[in-house]
Design a protein around this nucleic acid. Structure first.
Length: 570
DNA sequence: CTAGGGTTAG
């Protein structure tokens, strides 16, 4: 019996290990075998089996050592099984085992992964000296709650930082919508001579995807090629997503086509890419190929498909897909799927049907589902239903700022300024504020950010000069500023002015200064693009002979020759 | 052989 359990697990033999306990000859070696079995269960991703084995050990009176316990705790954390984790914790306290650094770290990590940061913090405070593993777990656990500054403080205090803690910090920034910080840290790490691995690269690529800057994306892609990560499937999947989100569907497609062994994430990433760019038919066609290749879709695949239908106005296809998901693929629809369906119906003005759809749900709708319907009420200017939906939404979450903003937009569109003021007053009293909208554009590899009416750019006066000059030219071509897109109560003349100060127009102005006719300008925005800016971009694409690729909160608009790829449906 | 970082959607 020289073949260790690790080898067994490599060949999928975890079941065999299970019966070792009944072989008398091995009885003296049982603890060791069990310990190694637990480890191999964890390595093969069979966390529940590992937990089961731990129970069997306890009932057969075998005292597990620190190695087993640390492994078990890891399994609890990965399965987010807090109650089992707590059981192991009390077991440790009751037995006479000493709490070594491994066990302390494993406990802290388990509590971090289960979301119990308070307990994790208490154990971490008691730990002296702090070790690297525990600190890394804490950095990751804070960062996931959005407390990025606290995570950064712990990170700064760590000595002899290794690859894993750099990766944890980079991933923290990437997931807290601070892609620039993530990329900055990645550069710092390399200057210190720490070599990234594929897991670091996943966070870096994801940061680049969120940033939406194509030059940066190409640089990361070259880095991946030059450092031998290109064959790693998860890295390729992340690259497909990155190129889609940076506006280059063609590059995403190239990587997709060059990937011989595609998994469900590869397919879903590409489907999402088509969906984001409003190419609903291609998304559906790709799904058919995926099924033909025998790859099983998951719940995320269906979210992407429904989203694809929604943004392309494919109502009937969407309905069929929703049914097929339940009937053919036996996937239970969750809130997200219902949200997508409500969005699909709502965008196509089927507001009553969307409401009935919500009422037919087998579980209580959440804020996302109601929020989809409220967004549709805004788009189609349905005040009556909008008021009802906003009320439902605020019953679930009284501090939902989005509900107030959408409701005030609905009133503003109907010129009901008294109601707009009421809603704003309510928001103010509750201490809620509207999220700040901003746009950004990459020029020669540098990302420039703009807020509405922003004067902070060093070339600000030049940018405004160019903007006013551009407005004149566009007006000659038939553009008229749409004051209705301004959702605050101002005089008409002030509104004309206000709508010209929208951040995406400032970004476009800088783009025009730095490009020539026939080139492509790429702009990203953290919110939905307004009607006036959408029209403005259409005119600009024709008059200035630029292709304009604008990424808004959820999708892409490709403006060319005066038309947009969304066919004004967004 | 044990503890820390991870790709698709929302």
């Amino acid at each position: 019996m020289q073949m260790g359990p690790f080898l067994f697990s490599k060949f999928g033999g975890v079941e065999l290990i299970h019966h070792f306990g009944f072989v008398d000859k091995l009885f003296t070696e049982l603890p060791r075998v069990l310990s190694e079995s637990t480890g191999s269960y964890c390595q093969s991703g069979c966390y529940n089996e590992a937990l089961q084995l731990f129970d069997e050990m306890k009932s057969s009176g075998i005292v597990p050592d620190q190695v087993i316990l640390a492994t078990i705790l890891s399994a609890c954390g990965r399965t987010k099984n807090l109650s089992s984790g707590e059981a192991v914790h009390s077991y440790i306290m009751e037995s006479n085992l000493s709490l070594d650094v491994h066990l302390q770290s494993a406990l802290i990590s388990m509590y971090c992964n289960c979301g119990s940061m308070d307990t994790a913090q208490r154990l971490y405070d008691e730990m002296s000296p702090k070790n690297l593993v525990a600190s890394t777990a804490m950095v990751s656990g804070y960062a996931k709650l959005g407390k990025i500054e606290i995570a950064r403080n712990i990170f700064e205090q760590m000595e002899d930082k290794d690859l894993v803690c750099w990766s944890a910090m980079i991933s923290g920034y990437a997931e807290s919508d601070q892609p620039n910080e993530a990329l900055k840290l990645f550069n710092e790490m390399q200057l210190l001579g720490v070599k990234p691995d594929e897991i670091t690269m996943l966070s870096v690529i994801s940061a680049c995807a969120n940033l939406g800057a194509l030059d940066q994306a190409k640089w990361v892609h070259i880095f991946v090629d030059n450092n031998g990560f290109y064959h790693v499937l998860s890295v390729r999947n992340a690259l497909i997503d990155m190129y889609s989100k940076c506006g280059s569907l063609a590059d995403a497609r190239t990587i997709f086509d060059e990937t011989d062994f595609k998994n469900v994430i590869t397919w879903t990433s590409m489907i999402t890419g088509f969906a984001m760019h409003g190419n609903g038919r291609s998304a559906l066609a790709l799904f058919d190929s995926m099924i033909a290749e025998g790859v099983k879709p998951n719940a995320v695949t269906f979210i992407s498909l429904l989203y694809a239908c929604s943004h392309a106005g494919l109502v009937e296809d969407g309905r069929k897909i929703f049914e097929s998901m339940i009937q053919d693929y036996r996937i239970e629809p969750k809130h997200e799927h219902y949200g997508c369906m409500v969005d699909l119906l709502g965008r196509s003005r089927l507001l009553r049907e969307a409401l009935e759809f919500i009422e037919s749900m087998p579980f209580a709708p959440n804020v996302v589902v109601w929020g989809s319907l409220l967004g549709a009420c805004r788009t189609h200017g349905d005040i009556e239903l909008g008021e009802l939906v906003a009320k439902k939404l605020l019953e679930i979450d009284p501090d939902h700022d989005g509900a107030y903003v959408l409701l005030s937009n609905i009133y503003a569109k109907a010129n009901r300024w008294g109601d707009v003021r009421e809603v704003r007053k309510l928001m103010k009293n509750k201490g809620l504020s509207k999220e700040t909208g901003f746009s950004w554009i990459e020029v020669n590899g540098i990302v420039h950010e703009f807020m509405m009416g922003d004067n902070s750019h060093p070339r600000s006066s030049e940018i405004y000069e160019k903007l006013y000059e551009a407005v004149k030219e566009l007006e000659n071509a038939g553009y008229a500023p749409d004051a209705a897109a301004v959702l605050v109560d101002l005089q008409e003349e002030e509104k004309r002015e206000a709508v010209l100060l929208h951040s995406e127009k400032l970004a476009l102005s800088l783009g025009l200064i730095n490009s020539s006719r026939g080139s492509c300008i790429r702009i990203a925005k953290n919110m939905r693009v307004c009607e006036d800016c959408h029209t403005f971009m259409k005119f600009a694409s024709k008059v200035f002979e630029r292709e304009i690729v604008l990424r808004d909160r959820t999708r892409f608009h490709h403006f060319k020759d005066g038309v947009c790829s969304c066919r004004d449906f967004w």
